[in-house]
Simulated assay, not measured.
Amino acid sequence: MELEVRHLRALCAIADTGSVRKAAVQLGMTQPSLTTQLRRIESTVGGTLFTRGQHGSRPTPLGHSVLTRARPIVAEMAALVAAAREAALGAGGLRLRIGSIGSPAVAGWLRRIHRRLPETDTTIHIEVSSNTLLQLLATNQLDVAFVHETAGFPLHVPPGVERRVLVAREPRFAELATGHPAARRPVAHLADLAREPWIVDPTADDEAAALRRAFTATGLDPRLVHVRDTATAADLVASGEAVRPCQPTAAPRPDGGTVVRPLAGDPLTVQLSLASRSGSLPLHDVDALFADLTAAYCDAAAASPPYRAWLTAHDSPLPLPG
């Protein structure tokens, strides 16, 4: 077997995510397929490249040596592909490639950008994983990215990538069925939800780990259910089968089947930021994109009564409309 760029890309993904499972999701592969590929790569190079433990996959000394040589090759190939795509657009073509986590603010952000830059070919790439977005940004596959970082679980920020903070501390709320006893109160307590199954997305950066840590801090042990499909997750919550953490800007189901409640003490928080490569866009362009995102986020925040109340109680500096 001869090593190809796709093999090197797989090694970089495992190192960046710290997990074969997360790397498989990032690469669009199944975990067994990536595991088999890794074994073949290790057989080719003649040694173990990663150690596997309860804290994930970590490069061995040989792995570090291989990765040092692999990363420039992967980056150069990504740059080559990006340059080819840019050439294919034709001379003088205006293009803006945006990446983002899923958020109610995204639609308003795009609407403002389209209105301000009507002649620009603007594309959007939505990812659950902020680490994946940062890698796409670092390899010139995106121009800017709206990302979040879970408190206590730092992102893997590639060299040359800068972040501008939008919200330093955004709380995570809980979505639960309207008929749940905790739905009768304006604030939910983890202790009241300790016996409920909690839905988490296994592809989301550290979501499960952060939730488990929050429960452990109160002496509780959560029951986690891994669900990737958002529609199925919403149905399970509405039926009373489970609860799930959600963004404070999230809206309850239109049919009234769910409610969104703050969690007492804010045990789960994230930082929201706009990431860009240093020098890839003029500063005034980044300023304008950040202003568009801020306005869109404020609209989404104002549309959520429980989040608006939370922001007011915490003296938020966000310029909420109205």
Score class of each variant (00 low, 15 high):
274 L>A: 09
276 S>L: 04
273 S>H: 01
267 P>I: 11
268 L>Y: 04
282 P>K: 10
276 S>F: 13
266 D>Y: 05
287 D>V: 01
273 S>I: 01
290 F>E: 13
278 S>M: 14
292 D>C: 05
291 A>L: 11
287 D>C: 01
286 V>G: 03
294 T>R: 12
294 T>S: 06
266 D>I: 09
272 L>C: 07
275 A>D: 15
274 L>C: 06
286 V>W: 03
285 D>P: 01
268 L>Q: 11
284 H>Q: 13
284 H>S: 15
283 L>G: 05
290 F>N: 02
288 A>R: 10
293 L>Q: 08
289 L>D: 02
270 V>N: 01
276 S>D: 00
283 L>T: 13
269 T>K: 07
277 R>C: 12
293 L>G: 02
289 L>Q: 06
265 G>S: 07
291 A>R: 10
265 G>C: 04
278 S>L: 15
291 A>G: 05
280 S>E: 10
278 S>T: 15
280 S>H: 12
283 L>F: 05
280 S>V: 00
288 A>Y: 04
291 A>S: 12
270 V>S: 12
276 S>I: 07
292 D>A: 11
279 G>C: 02
271 Q>E: 15
289 L>C: 06
275 A>E: 11
279 G>F: 10
283 L>R: 08
269 T>F: 06
286 V>M: 07
287 D>L: 00
282 P>E: 10
287 D>W: 00
269 T>A: 14
266 D>K: 08
290 F>S: 03
282 P>R: 13
287 D>K: 02
287 D>S: 09
290 F>Y: 13
266 D>A: 13
267 P>S: 14
281 L>D: 08
292 D>K: 03
281 L>R: 08
268 L>S: 08
282 P>C: 09
273 S>C: 01
287 D>E: 03
272 L>M: 09
282 P>I: 02
282 P>A: 10
265 G>N: 09
271 Q>Y: 03
290 F>C: 02
273 S>M: 02
276 S>R: 09
279 G>M: 06
285 D>T: 12
276 S>E: 09
278 S>V: 15
279 G>L: 10
283 L>Y: 05
275 A>K: 06
277 R>I: 15
293 L>R: 02
290 F>R: 05
292 D>L: 04
265 G>V: 08
275 A>V: 11
276 S>Y: 14
290 F>Q: 08
279 G>V: 08
280 S>C: 02
281 L>F: 09
286 V>Y: 01
280 S>D: 07
294 T>E: 11
271 Q>V: 04
285 D>C: 08
274 L>V: 13
273 S>N: 00
284 H>K: 10
290 F>I: 03
288 A>T: 10
